[in-house]
Write a protein that binds this DNA or RNA. Structure first.
Length: 333
DNA sequence: GGCCCTCTTTAGGGCCTT
């Protein structure tokens, strides 16, 4: 039997480190705010040092797992399938049945604007699952190019908090100089095509979301690049973006933070990483390395902007249907 | 392509994503 490597991996990070950093200060921001600016900085930055730098350098707590599945993933979806995750050093093995989790259906509420409701009801904010994601592609045009790698990371951390896979684009990869992903790496029968991968991706995200909750997917330049690419690929494969997926673009957040800097701000993800002195893990422009970087950058940006979950959702999130529509309306009158 | 900035708004250039 051919053992088809799905080429996606799951990494195990210290449980709740990121969750603690993000959610604790978000939830307690107003409380901490009463203590004073200096106290906020010292407390949160201390948490950041432990949660971010400590995590990145902590090899003893970080175990990379590879995931392999047997058989074609699309065919496998027709029946209950278990994907086995094997730790590289083979000292331990674990199994996760990502097909057993239910994706919560929101019914016909697609594109119903819940952002105002979240702003008015803090309990709804607790139903949010924040997932940082990044894609690598064969180029910049959403119409002509294809996704060749995708990585996600649940901000809560913990076991199976990350998801990473190469994607077979069915064409050559002309821009390997960018991400070091070659045609030979992805044009293989054991690398899933997007149509096979999307159901797995949906199940994974569904396994991370809270019952009845919403998923907030965060990416750098999400509005201009990642989300349009996702929409295009989902559409091409006859899938819909789930109705409970919201998106946040960190590029305008960075622009807002950096605009007071005087000189022309550098807003590339790697520049933001340098600004915040965040160490790079892995190769830049590989999806998971960029996800780890953005995870740290996102938290620093939201801290600098003093954003709570409700204010982030209300003021900085968007639905897929809003992509392609200019956020700022030109004055027609 | 979306967004921001300016030498602007009846526009154009540059950044950001790969």
């Amino acid at each position: 039997m051919r053992r088809a490597a799905m080429c996606f991996s799951l990494s195990h990070f210290p449980r709740c480190r990121v969750h603690t950093l993000t959610n604790s200060w978000w939830q307690s921001f107003h409380h901490i705010n009463r203590i004073g600016r200096g106290s906020i900085s010292s407390k949160v930055l201390a948490a950041g040092k432990q949660g971010l730098e400590g995590r990145f350098n902590s090899t003893e707590n970080r175990r990379t797992l590879t995931t392999k599945s047997e058989g074609n993933s699309k065919a496998a979806l027709s029946k209950k399938t278990t994907i086995r995750h094997e730790i590289l050093d083979e000292t331990t093995k674990s199994e996760v049945d990502i097909y057993s989790s239910e994706i919560t259906e929101i019914g016909n509420t697609q594109y119903v604007d819940i952002r105002q409701a979240i702003a008015e009801n803090k309990d709804l904010a607790k139903l949010m699952t924040f997932i940082i994601f990044d894609i690598e592609t064969t180029g910049l045009s959403r119409d002509r190019e294809r996704i060749i790698e995708i990585a996600l990371r649940d901000l809560r951390g913990g076991e199976n908090s990350t998801f990473q896979t190469l994607v077979n684009p069915g064409c050559i990869v002309p821009n390997s100089f960018v991400h070091k992903i070659t045609t030979g790496m992805v044009n293989r029968p054991d690398v899933p095509r997007m149509g096979d991968l999307i159901p797995i991706l949906l199940r994974y995200v569904g396994s991370r979301q809270k019952p009845g909750g919403y998923v907030v997917l965060v990416a750098h330049n999400a509005r201009g690049f990642d989300v349009p690419f996702l929409i295009k690929e989902f559409s091409r494969c006859s899938f819909d973006i789930p109705s409970n997926w919201l998106f946040v673009d960190t590029l305008p957040l960075a622009r807002e933070v950096m605009k007071s800097g005087g000189s022309k701000p550098k807003l590339k993800l790697q520049d933001l990483g340098q600004h915040y002195e965040i160490p790079l893990v892995g190769s830049a422009h590989r999806a998971m390395a960029d996800v780890h970087m953005l995870t740290a950058v996102f938290q620093r940006l939201t801290f600098d902007l003093k954003l709570t979950i409700p204010s982030l959702i209300e003021g900085h999130s968007f639905w897929p249907s809003e992509v392609g529509r200019s956020k700022k309306k030109k004055n027609s009158g």
